[in-house]
Design a protein around this nucleic acid. Sequence first.
RNA 1: GGAGGGUUAGGCUAAUGGUAAGUCACCGGUCUUGAAAACCGGCGGGCUAACGCCCUUGGGGGUUCGAGUCCCUCACCCUCCGCCA
Length: 425
Amino acid sequence: MLDVKFLRENLEEVEKRLKTRGGAVDLSGFRELDSRRRKLLTEAEALRARRNAVSEEVGRLKREKKDASHLVAEMQEEGAKLKALETEATGVDEELNKFLLEVPNVPHTSVPVGNDSTDNPVIREWGERPDFKFSPLEHTDVGEALGILDFERAGKISGARFSLLMGAGALLERALINFMLDLHTREHGYTEVLPPFMVKSAALQGTGQLPKFREDLFKVEGSDHFLIPTAEVPVTNIYYDEIIDEERLPISYAAYTPCFRSEAGSYGKDVKGLIRQHQFEKVELVKFSHPDSSYDQLERLTANAEEVLKRLGLAYRVVTLCTGDMGFASAKTYDLEVWLPGQGKYREISSCSNFEDFQARRANIRFRPKGGKPRFVHTLNGSGLAVGRTLVAILENYQQEDGSVVVPGALRPYMGGLEKIVKKS
RNA sequence: GGAGGGUUAGGCUAAUGGUAAGUCACCGGUCUUGAAAACCGGCGGGCUAACGCCCUUGGGGGUUCGAGUCCCUCACCCUCCGCCA
């Protein structure tokens, strides 16, 4: 959510910059709503001030055993006026709030202007793409041939966009989770968190998924619970409505969770394989930062996610999302894209964002500067990494001509020393 | 599921229906060579150039001239019982 005062004072500039995100941005209603709200507030406050003064006078008269009935009668009338005014003010307030909750974050000045993913500049590349002496298969073919991936049977159980990992496939997934968590907690200074996998709507509003993106979520029937679309939601909301001691910043958390997404509107996209699922596993990195250093923290967080790919020996590139491709709540986002030889493309495997105070304002997460008033923190997060897609990358990059898959060295300690996944006879 | 107790500002804690008192921590100041102590001030949010004014006692609603306090409702926490991995 944007700061009302900031919006009031910079409306034209904000509108101009939000337009670069593409889509419909209409802030024209703001001025009217804001001034109506302020006018009603002033009127109601004046009435309340009078009521408070008169009530005090009534109390004084009663204590002195004097008659106060004329004042009481007067206030009974005034009370009705005040109530009407308050009802109207509450209405306008709700309208303004509803409006503000749907306004996206303002892109940082360093974000390139562009329309879509084709305008995202590549800022660095790492690693060698493997050179195959044969035509590399997609991960679905590799996995199904090895008997470690089963989409048919997953379909019987849960329908489309679900998967079944068997044997070495399930072990590989578990190894990746443990490897990533160990790397971030032991070497990058993150504290491990295992949060709830269901959250209430207030938490989703805090991080920005609600109210605008309800259709992307799975909701539990008959209660105010949603399945988390990412660990960002429960982990960022750990400090919902809290004031954090300044000395504790930055706070860095790493969390493994499954993620659940309805993928509404993505029909026909990535229908095959593990790339786009209703349920997938992810290790997420979340930071709470002092506003002065949040962009340094974004660089560090991104580097921490990249380290996973480096240790696994997977070629990747880093792109800066242009204004038209950024998420709703983000001020700046880097995507990590891993090379998938089976598809012959780079595919997103991590998305690292600085939300500045956009989420902190919604979730009321503040810190107290030395001797000063509480200020909003900056929140950041990034995948470190999407586990399912990492498994895809391993199957495609480490596949052998005989159909086996070599286990990257970094993962072998997590797989009982297994060096190669082969078909079980 | 049943019974009882609870939720007040960063923490802790008070307030016969009369307009949120105190305390600890923290910040600033006076004093001091420096520090501590002591004393003074500040320490939830909004509006205002300022003086001030308004809001804030878990959420929502009601009664009342006036609600932390009374009533209704919801949420969460604690204790006990039942069920349960």
